[in-house]
Design a protein around this nucleic acid. Structure first.
Length: 283
DNA sequence: CATCATACCTGTTCGC
DNA sequence: TGCGAACAGGTATGAT
């Protein structure tokens, strides 16, 4: 569920469902994904839910916070009285809730539960002091947030300083927080830029177009509640909708609606990249 | 220092 | 159909 719109959808739903609940017990079935002392969470009340790039932060009323990164296939799913009627669990939740891919269960008061599922086991949860969230090694490395502190000036300056291909730069969390493979593919298509273009070769007007394209595709993803192409589900257990509106991602072999070219898929920066070779220009 | 390749896992899809 | 290879939305780490 990984990118900004997906994680923000998680944050919004968690804010609706788990804020105010108390953690009664933390059940850990896969120790490697959990850092910190789960016993310290006992009886803590859940306060604000924050997001830093693709990371979720759950603040508790005992000066501790729970940091969560779902990586590619992690899922946070709430079942309890704040969700009624609860939608059916999507079949993307492999093994269901409490099955072999459920690594952590936060047992909350009022018979509620928050499940952490992750069949690929890349995701992690850690307990840190709320005061020290911003100093956390992972959080500290996250760059400016789109719609907040990502400015065109900073973006232009950063791109001018690197020779890496623009696709890798977009997915670099230090450059822009929250952009991953789907939205990088779509933003590059929207701005008509070839993914292997060296970042520093982009003319200023193209950088500007790309900047706006990033915000546009993220905005669309947010409006759709994220993309459920693979394993993403929202905490109510349902799917998002952005997968119905992909611009380039997952369109290999299909016709480009802008120029009629055929989308191709290459590996760029170690990841699959879909683009239209006819109208996405390399600089 | 900057950049690239690989590893971490398991489930699904692709190609012969 | 069957079976192995390649791949999947991310990031840390080690190599170059």
């Amino acid at each position: 569920m990984p990118e900004l719109p997906e994680v923000e959808s998680i944050r919004l739903q968690l804010t609706k469902y788990v804020v105010g609940h108390k953690i009664e017990k933390t059940e850990i079935n896969y120790k490697k994904c959990f850092q910190g002392d789960p016993n310290k969470l006992k009886q803590a009340k859940i306060g604000e839910i924050r997001r830093f790039g693709k990371a979720i932060v759950i603040d508790l009323n005992n000066k501790l916070s729970i940091l969560i990164h779902v990586k590619m296939t992690g899922q946070l799913i709430y079942r309890g009285p704040n969700l009624s009627p609860a939608p059916a669990i999507s079949d993307k939740v492999k093994g269901g809730l409490g099955g072999k891919h459920t690594h952590v269960v936060f047992h909350l008061n009022k018979d509620a539960k928050l499940f952490f599922n992750d069949y690929r086991k890349f995701g992690w949860i850690k307990v840190v002091k709320t005061d020290e969230v911003e100093e956390d090694k992972f959080i500290k490395n996250i760059g400016p947030e789109p719609f907040k502190d990502l400015t065109i000036e900073y973006f232009t300056k950063t791109l001018s300083k690197t020779k890496r291909n623009i696709k890798s730069v977009l997915m670099d969390q230090k450059v822009v927080a929250g952009v991953g493979n789907i939205y990088a593919n779509d933003a590059l298509w929207l701005s008509g830029i070839h993914p292997t273009t060296p970042a520093h070769k982009l003319p200023p007007e193209k950088v500007k177009e790309l900047y706006h394209a990033i915000e546009q595709v993220l905005q669309r993803g947010l409006a759709d509640g994220g993309a459920s192409e693979n394993s993403f589900v929202t905490p109510d257990g349902a799917d998002g909708n952005y997968q119905k509106h992909f611009l380039a991602y997952d369109k290999k072999g299909e016709k480009c609606v802008r120029c009629g070219g055929i989308f191709v898929k290459d590996k760029v920066g170690g990841r699959g990249s879909v683009y239209c070779p006819k109208c996405q220009k390399k600089y």
